[in-house]
Amino acid sequence: MVPSEIRQTAVVASKNGLHARPAIQLAELAQRFASSIQIVKDDIAVDGKSVLQVMTLAAENGASLLVVAKGADAQDAASAIVGIIETEDSSAGAEAGASEAGASGA
């Protein structure tokens, strides 16, 4: 079977951007797929399976990213990665709660 290539764009939903935890979650998810997964921001492409590389994108809230998956499970991989990029950071609330009053300003 010829590996397929799927390209999908995603907008970063996390209020604080793709900081450490979302980057870790993204890379962990990417590692579950056989397909290669690249994340492209502007003209920089990184390996979606590398936490460090994903963090170097410093993708802010609202940034548009291109997800390029190549391989037998490319469609599933691309959909999953787009899904996690477009999910609000579940840890943001806990973090604001841990900080003092004023931490939750918009």
Binding site: N16, A23, A58, G105
Partner: peptide, 20 residues
């Protein structure tokens, strides 16, 4: 600081870049 998420991203970006 809670109101400067982009600084946090920029700092992480540098750490990640150098650690590679």
């Amino acid at each position: 600081p809670p109101d400067r998420p982009s600084d946090h991203l920029r700092a992480l970006e540098n750490i990640a870049k150098q650690l590679q």
